[in-house]
Amino acid sequence: MNIMSQEKLEEAVSGGMTAKPNEVIKMQGRKVGVFYGDKQALFDVDLDVRQNQVTALIGPSGCGKSTFLRCLNRMNDTIDSARVTGKITLDGEDVYDPKIDVVELRARVGMVFQKPNPFPKSIYENVAYGPKIHGLAKNKAELDQIVESSLKKAALWNEAKDRLNEPGTGLSGGQQQRLCIARAIAVSPEVILMDEPCSALDPIATAKVEELIDELKQNYTIVIVTHSMQQAARVSQRTAMFHLGYLVEEGATDKMFTNPDDKRTQDYITGRFG
């Protein structure tokens, strides 16, 4: 109840400023801290992720932005020494609640990684993997339908439709990353987390993926970690700046890039450090 009221309060405040009545808070982090063993990597991060918007996490290497991202779908659980404190909610539900099934959470909060990591299977099987394990398709025809629509949403269908049975590892780097996005879309997530999705891609492939991200926000909520200021400016509506494990500043992207409150943000954006 407490969270709900706070949520509403913030919504009212931000709604008044940006004049978007449908701005719903999809995920919310409160006092999020992460420890790797004894070392604390993230300190008291309070951050909201708004529905159907792209939230960019920026900051120099090692600032904790990827760590925060991996908290959102509990990928940090796969690291033995990692420990998360604070509270993260998805539609108001605490994702670290012991009653939450992590498998279900990850189906709702999908992830695309820094390096394209298609499975050593065919393109079709790569996309069909998620729907199969979650039983989303009743028969082959439905599965085909999911694969096709996911590849279309990921803007890969035209390039891949004639080679669905060829290995996904045979695609080019940019195509592989779009395949990974299609794979994430195929389980119909609500939120897609992207951890520097373009860092291994050339500018042309990057442009395609960015275009795709822009389209995807119609249906999904996206959180993207990026090292590229231009990318953050191009694709995101909200930007959060991290530094040394702390959230420095968070706000609308236009404001962050033109008139940031914090000097560190200004310095980072203008290339004075990082």
């Binding site: 990684f113 050593p120 993997y129």
Partner: peptide, 27 residues
């Protein structure tokens, strides 16, 4: 088998045993 394979599968909401059976062992 690269860690990226495991992360990719786990990130799609696969369980550990599904990841082993369907991704790691085939790879």
């Amino acid at each position: 088998v690269p860690r990226a394979m495991r992360d990719g599968s786990l990130g799609l909401g696969a369980t550990r045993s599904e990841t082993i059976k369907r991704v790691i062992l085939p790879a």
